[in-house]
């Protein structure tokens, strides 16, 4: 199976979200640990989807993945559109609830999301809908354990109970309004405002 690990924002972009456990060093440590789980087996592949030109920072980890050049772990560069990875991904691993999470909701691919209340608190109505669609790991340790378990046993365990990859309730709730496409809504709204200059 091919796993796509969606790396969260780092540096200046992460600052506003970097609450507690989500400092850059902790996220990097987590990526190292997840990579090691994949290096230790030969059946599954992991692709780190980078963003924000992370590879240009040369923090060390990305260079090492390139240097090791093993089939289990690879990188997808920042300049490659995230959406282009959808077709070839079997499972998404998401480091933090974000725009990428919203985007993968259009697929019917399973996803494991790290959502730690020490760093990011989700609104209750979002959490309720999210639980129906993705498995949620409440802390980094649970996240790596769940990945380890996925590699060994597949989609078993309490994190996956009640999760349906085809559930699109959250996506609907988050993006739809009145059933009309967004483009039409915006055009109609702008047209209405054309005459409002006072």
């Amino acid at each position: 199976m091919i796993y796509t690990y969606v790396c969260g924002a780092m540096g200046a972009y992460n600052i506003e979200f970097k609450n507690g456990v989500y400092d850059d060093a902790s996220l990097y440590q987590l990526r190292h640990e997840v990579a090691e789980l994949f290096y230790a087996q030969t059946t599954h592949q992991l692709r780190f989807k980078l963003g924000y030109d992370l590879e240009k920072k040369h923090y060390g980890f990305e260079d090492e993945v390139e240097r090791r050049n093993q089939p289990q772990v690879s990188l997808i560069g920042s300049r490659t559109g995230f959406v282009t990875t959808f077709a070839t991904t079997d499972v998404f691993l998401i480091e933090a609830p974000s725009t990428s999470l919203l985007e993968i909701l259009v697929t019917e691919k399973p996803a494991l999301v790290l959502s730690d209340e020490r760093g990011l608190r989700l609104r209750p109505e979002i959490l309720r809908l999210l639980r129906k669609r993705v498995a949620i790991a409440p802390d980094p340790e649970a996240f790596t354990q769940a990945i380890d378990s996925l590699l060994r046993d597949g989609f078993v365990g309490p994190l996956w109970q009640g999760v349906h990859a085809s559930n699109r309730e959250l996506f609907e709730a988050f993006t739809r309004t009145g059933g009309r496409p967004g483009l039409e809504n915006i055009t109609a709204f702008l047209t209405k405002t054309l005459s409002q200059r006072t």
Binding site: M10, G20, V21, Y22, D23, D24, A25, S26, L27, Y28, Q29, L30, H32, K57, Y59, G60, F61, E64, D139, P140
Partner: peptide, 22 residues
């Protein structure tokens, strides 16, 4: 370890360290 490069280098040097999440 305060930064990502430190995490990488400390792991490589096999030094025992902690990060904030630890």
């Amino acid at each position: 370890a305060w930064t990502p490069p430190a995490v990488h280098a400390l792991r490589k040097a096999r030094v025992d360290f902690k990060t904030l999440s630890d």
